[in-house]
């Protein structure tokens, strides 16, 4: 127990990522000297203007990209590649268009490491459980193109959770939705993440967004990034009470925190559209 208290779930230590431009070979620094510790069970949002390297940070945690320098550790062990202990939800959901809702949710369990050693019955049961969890019963046999954006998002979420990862990595998963659906799904996301459960049972979540209110609503702490090069401006703890519901948006502290974050990125946001 004391070990989990002292050792963070995820640790980024002086992480820098450079990309070489194709053809010209010019190197650009996407992420510069990022150090960050994320505790188990925390919901952390990364906000920042586009081009600040949010997605790059997430890809490196996922193991899809390697840092140019610095280290990333999970439970004290360095990350060397992608693994099912870190589930990813992509910006465009990355649902397999040729698989039905049910088969999409079951993809990792049936083909990847999460389902290894599980009996076929248990796999199917687990899939059904997650279909219920995201309230997709009845849409199981539909293809992704036949369902709405909000439903697709929930399929992606169910697929993410069905694989039972320790860490949830989500890259603007609500970005493509209309404003109302977004608000509804934010609350639902917190429910599914385990807001009402005791802290030890919650997953560790890293959530990327450019929506400040969304970040404040969801997180335990918000990491504010700035661009050119991508680095961390500040890490703000969000001390709003949990469980949260719509009313939290009316909380004076909510406005205050939002304002604080906006202060940090305003200049850059204005510069970006100038």
């Amino acid at each position: 127990m004391s070990d989990t208290m002292t050792r963070p779930k995820l640790r980024l230590d002086h992480v820098t990522k450079e990309f070489a431009a194709p053809r010209t070979g010019l190197r650009t620094v996407a992420v510069s000297d990022v150090s960050l510790e994320i505790q188990a069970g925390d919901f952390v949002c990364i906000v920042g203007p586009s081009g600040c390297g949010k997605t790059t940070v997430m890809n490196m945690i996922a193991g899809l990209d390697k840092p140019s320098s610095g280290t990333i550790e999970i439970d004290g062990a360095p990350i060397t590649g992608p693994g099912a202990d870190r589930g990813v939800m992509f910006q465009d959901y990355a649902l397999f268009p040729w698989l039905t809702v049910r088969d999409n949710i079951g993809f990792g369990l049936r083909n990847g490491t999460p389902g290894r050693g599980m009996a076929a019955n248990d796999v199917e049961e687990r899939i059904s459980k997650h279909i219920e969890l995201v309230r997709l019963g009845g849409a199981e046999t539909k293809y992704p193109h036949q369902i709405s954006g909000g439903m697709r998002q929930r399929v992606a979420l169910a697929r993410l959770l069905a694989n039972g990862p320790d860490v949830l990595l989500m890259d603007e998963p609500l970005g493509a939705l209309d404003a109302q659906t977004r608000l509804i799904l934010q609350a639902e996301l917190l429910r599914i993440w385990g807001e009402t459960a005791p802290r030890e049972e919650r997953k560790t979540a890293v959530f990327i967004t450019h929506d400040i209110a969304e970040a404040v609503f969801l997180s335990d702490s918000v990491v504010v990034m700035s661009s050119h090069p991508g680095r961390i401006r500040a890490v703000l703890p969000i001390d709003l009470p949990r469980p949260r519901d719509e009313h939290v948006r009316a909380h004076p502290r909510f406005a205050q925190l939002s304002e604080e974050i906006w202060e940090l990125i305003r200049d850059e946001a204005y510069r970006a559209i100038a």
């Binding site: 996922a62 193991g63 899809l64 590649g81 992608p82 693994g83 099912a84 870190r86 589930g87 990813v88 992509f90 465009d92 990355a94 397999f96 268009p97 040729w98 993809f107 990792g108 083909n111 990847g112 490491t113 999460p114 694989n163």
Partner: peptide
């Protein structure tokens, strides 16, 4: 083939051969 789909499969611990059979071939079908 959508790179994201391949990456999604990788994050679920799917082996290279299975990615070929379950992601790339259907995508190219």
């Amino acid at each position: 083939t959508d790179r994201n789909l391949v990456q999604a499969a990788r994050t679920m611990g799917v082996s290279r051969f299975r990615i070929l059979a379950k992601v790339i071939v259907p995508a190219a079908l």
